[in-house]
Simulated assay, not measured.
Amino acid sequence: MKDIAREAGVSASAVSFALNNRAGVSPGTRARIERVAERLGWRPHSAARALSGESAGVLGMVLARPAGSLGVESFFLQLMSGIQRALAPRDHALLFQMVDDLDSECELYRRWWAEGRVDGVVVVDPRTEDPRPALLASLGLPAVVVGGMETGGQAPPTGPRLSNVWADDTAAMVTIVRHLYGLGHRRVAHIGGIGGFAHTERRIEALRAEAARAELADARSVTTDYTDAQGAEAARGLLAQTTPPTALICDNEVMAVAAVSVAAERGLAVPRDISIVSWEDSVLCRTLHPQLTSLSRDTEEFGRHAAEALLAVLTGGPGRRVTVPLPRLIPRESTAPPPGG
Rank of each mutant, 00 (worst) to 15 (best):
298 D>E: 14
284 L>P: 01
274 I>D: 00
317 G>F: 07
296 S>V: 09
266 R>Q: 14
339 P>S: 01
196 G>E: 12
110 R>N: 06
206 A>G: 06
113 W>Q: 13
161 R>G: 01
107 E>H: 13
262 V>I: 12
96 F>L: 15
110 R>C: 12
65 R>H: 13
12 A>W: 12
100 D>K: 10
226 Y>F: 15
14 A>P: 12
92 H>T: 00
225 D>V: 06
321 R>C: 05
173 M>H: 07
245 P>C: 04
150 E>W: 05
177 V>Y: 09
132 R>C: 02
139 L>T: 09
180 L>T: 02
282 S>E: 05
315 T>G: 10
312 A>M: 05
229 A>N: 01
278 S>W: 07
209 A>K: 10
163 S>W: 05
265 E>Y: 00
323 T>P: 00
71 G>E: 15
71 G>I: 06
130 D>T: 01
120 G>P: 11
318 P>F: 11
71 G>L: 12
328 R>K: 14
90 R>H: 14
135 L>G: 08
141 L>A: 09
26 S>G: 15
268 L>V: 03
60 G>C: 02
52 S>H: 02
153 G>V: 03
118 V>C: 12
139 L>P: 02
90 R>L: 15
31 A>H: 10
164 N>V: 15
122 V>E: 02
237 G>P: 02
292 L>Y: 08
126 P>C: 03
86 A>D: 13
50 A>W: 09
106 C>R: 15
203 R>A: 02
276 I>R: 09
147 G>V: 09
296 S>N: 08
156 P>L: 09
90 R>W: 04
154 Q>F: 01
64 A>M: 05
136 L>A: 07
300 E>C: 05
129 E>R: 13
259 A>W: 05
191 I>R: 07
18 A>K: 08
5 A>F: 10
156 P>F: 08
77 L>Y: 10
